[in-house]
């Protein structure tokens, strides 16, 4: 089953044509990774999926993006879209407030006020992000005091607290050390049972380790999109091969 259907998607930042005629379907309950050199458009595509590009100045989009058949750029309420399609950023961005308030921010935004319910959501989200044991005694402490890896897992927990259907991750481990990266990868493999995950990464080993399908981007185009295993063992396109063998990028 597909969660996203993308058709003839074009994206411009001012005069710059960042995404060229993208057509792809993304599978549900799967990890899909986007790889490619810097500036190839992989993050831009990720951000069109939850309309974070709306914030970017001078950004124009044409074409179709459908979330379970519903047009993302149509009548859909953008805040509801972002509730359904969560996002984790490259740099951990916990809010300057307590761990608890960070997690509770999303549910509160969507109208949950009862302390009992919020407590439950906070505990569940932290448990799902495998960080409950580390943080259960520090719920009232500022989230800014956590380590980088903990902050990023907190951000994942925060994204999950609004029970999204899909998680978008924009190079979530590029600012972290290898141990924290390992923990997050482990977490993602666990989360894909329940969520569809799309991850942008610069790290090809990471894509090979965790993702089911991989898309290779170059100059705003999808060069190759297939099962991760086949892409890394038998790339069909010469450019993909050059990239994954480290000849450029």
């Amino acid at each position: 089953m597909k969660c996203f259907e993308i058709e003839k998607l074009n994206l411009h930042y001012g005069d710059f044509h960042a995404l060229k005629n993208i057509c792809m379907n993304i599978e549900k309950e799967n990890i899909t990774s986007f790889i490619g050199p810097s500036g190839c458009g992989k993050s831009s595509l990720l951000k069109t999926l939850n309309r974070m590009n709306d914030i970017a100045e001078g950004c124009r989009i044409s074409g179709d993006v459908k979330l379970f058949g519903e047009d993302v750029y149509g009548d859909m309420d953008v805040n509801m879209l972002r509730k359904r399609v969560g996002m984790v950023f490259q740099k951990p961005n916990p809010f300057p407030m307590s761990v608890y308030d960070n997690i509770a921010f999303g549910p509160r935004t969507h109208g949950i006020k009862s302390k009992y319910e919020l407590d439950k959501i906070v505990e569940k989200a932290l448990q799902d992000a495998a960080i409950w044991n580390e943080l259960k005694d520090r719920l009232k402490k500022s989230a800014l005091g956590l380590s980088g890896g903990q902050q990023q897992r907190l951000c994942i927990a925060r994204a999950m607290a609004v029970s999204p259907e899909i998680l978008l991750m924009d190079e979530p481990t590029s600012a972290l050390d290898p141990i924290s990266t390992g923990k997050i990868e482990e977490l993602l493999l666990h989360l894909k049972e329940a969520y569809s995950i799309i991850i942008v990464t610069h790290n090809m080993q990471q894509a090979a380790r965790i993702s089911d399908k991989t898309a290779f981007f170059l100059f705003g185009q999808v060069i190759e999109y297939s099962e991760t295993e086949s892409m890394f063992t038998m790339p069909r396109d010469k450019r993909t091969e050059d990239y994954i063998t480290g000849r450029f990028g």
Partner: peptide
């Protein structure tokens, strides 16, 4: 206040003014 606080709040489904008053202004 870093723009990524704003992005974080908006990405959770908060509207512009909620993000500004609940996250940016306290920061």
């Amino acid at each position: 206040v870093p723009q990524n606080y704003y992005e974080g709040a908006v990405a959770l489904g908060a509207g512009h003014y909620r993000a500004v008053f609940k996250v940016i202004l306290p920061a």
